[in-house]
Amino acid sequence: MRWDWHDRLHLLGLVVVVAAMAWLLLAGAPGDSGARQASGIERAMERELAYQARAAFLQQIYGPVEELRRQGQAQQALLMLEQLNRNYAGEAHGYILKGLILHEQGVLEEAVASFVQGLRLNGDYVDQRSPLSERARIQNAVDEGLTTLGARARANPDNLSVAAALRNVYYLQSRLAGGCE
């Protein structure tokens, strides 16, 4: 194969461009804070900050409910949740808290339904590593649900509502088991 002026020019250009790129990557990028920001290097940290801020915000907003719950005033806590719902309707944290309180009150079916609503909005509550995790308590509800609702479903195979409640338990069980989302 003969190399004419066209080939030689392209080869030279290729060598120059590759060399420039290598220089840019090795020397330019790490020290250039502007380029770093532009290429989104700090995005991960920003995301973590936003997440931590969200967790802190939720804990602040729902703090009074948690406090009432700790004091054993379950009904008062539920009513406070209802009030917060006026401003933060559809927030997963509210559903999870409601599920926890209802479960403590022994209202299993509604507790499970509330956990389902919360988890469908935000799966963090069954993550081991999340500061919001309520995995152990949700697992307790599932264990209880499989026993009591399972028995109720077997005794009433035609009852659609019991079947729906059991499906909710299975959903939670599946989320707790992990796997892809």
């Binding site: 009904q75 949740l81 209802l102 209202v107 079916e109 509604e110 339904a113």
Partner: peptide
């Protein structure tokens, strides 16, 4: 309401 098909008296 919060208790679904049930409620309580207070």
């Amino acid at each position: 309401g919060q208790y679904g098909s049930r409620t309580a008296g207070a």
